[in-house]
Amino acid sequence: MAKSEQELPEGFRQLRTQVAGHTFEESNAEAVGLLQDSKAGCVLKPLGKPECGERELRFYESLAAAAASGDNDLALLRDHVPRFYGPLKLVVNRRERSFLRLEDLTRGMRQPCVMDVKMGKRTWDPASSPNKRKLEEAKYVLCKQKLGLCLPGFQVYLPNEEHPKETTILRHGKDYGKSLNVEGFKQTMALFFNASTSDSKSRRAGTEVLLNEVLRQLQEILAWFHRQRLLHFYASSLLICYDYSRLGNPPTSQSLLNGHRLNEDDPATWVRVRMIDFAHVYPAEQALPDENYMFGLQSLIEVVQSILHR
């Protein structure tokens, strides 16, 4: 079944900004990717394998419950994950399937740049079989062991070299990510942030605002991990999204006067870094910190800092 022939409920479509994860496949009618409900501003993520889907659903429900119960650590995490709007059943390709309704992190972006970065040297969870562990250890070896980072996919808008006022879209998937060594990863990150393609003073200023805002959000997530002793996250990713169209319109110095941003100029309105993919979240063993995730997160912060200060 061709991707264009998918039988979807009225009002839903395939998520055009999906860069990683399970997708609709032409040769497999059972394969289901992310859907978008553009009117509601939601992304619908299929639950997948029963045990993984249930674990991810329970994770989102636990965050919702934490706000009511006063569990401060979990409640604070809600700021760093997409908003959760509950589960939903839909008939896709004549079969009922279960989905999670999540915030569309690219909503309102005219030219959304999106990157999925998988975190940690170890991407297999405590319940994994020896064979699963072996398979995971063989993936993304060049970057994963040195940086604790993998790059499953991204899309980015770039200036068109022949027509500077126009843009082109570059998309790469997991095969590209698996080929990267450490230097290649760093170069790809600079490319994604348009740090090596800024062709005007205003766009260079916008890239600086972008990098600083990404760092701010990454450091807030790292601060949460330093504090929490509840959970360990395996095979979880960070989704980095920004609107390329805003690079040429960074906040003015006046809008940042005394450290207070005017709302329309707040970079957080067009730069979003969120944790995603929680099918392999487990209680922290012996209440230890999640060193595996933090190693990757610290590496990512250092990479972004090196792009900002080069």
Rank of each mutant, 00 (worst) to 15 (best):
Q228E: 09
E137Y: 00
E161T: 09
K174T: 11
Q155W: 02
D175G: 07
S27Q: 11
R83Y: 03
L211H: 12
G41F: 07
S128T: 02
P46V: 12
Q111R: 04
K134D: 14
D73I: 04
F192W: 10
R171E: 04
N72Y: 10
R272G: 04
D175P: 11
F24L: 08
P9H: 06
L88S: 05
A223V: 13
V141I: 14
T123A: 08
K201F: 10
Q36E: 00
P130S: 15
A68C: 10
T252F: 06
L262C: 09
Q298N: 07
S236E: 02
Q228N: 01
H309N: 02
Q219L: 11
H260A: 15
C143S: 13
T167Y: 05
L142P: 00
V303T: 07
R203M: 04
T252Q: 03
A75V: 09
E56H: 11
V32Y: 09
V304S: 07
S196A: 10
E30G: 14
Q298H: 14
S236W: 04
A279F: 14
F193C: 15
R94Y: 04
A65S: 03
E56S: 05
C52Q: 14
R272P: 03
Y140D: 11
A268N: 07
K178C: 13
H260R: 08
V281Y: 03
F59P: 02
L44W: 07
P126Y: 01
A287E: 14
R203C: 03
S245I: 13
E25N: 14
A284S: 05
S245A: 14
Q155M: 14
V304W: 08
N258F: 15
F278C: 08
E5I: 15
R55Q: 09
L100P: 00
V43W: 12
L34V: 12
N212Y: 02
P46R: 10
D243V: 02
G153Y: 01
T168H: 04
G148V: 09
H22Y: 13
T106A: 12
A287H: 10
T106K: 06
S200R: 07
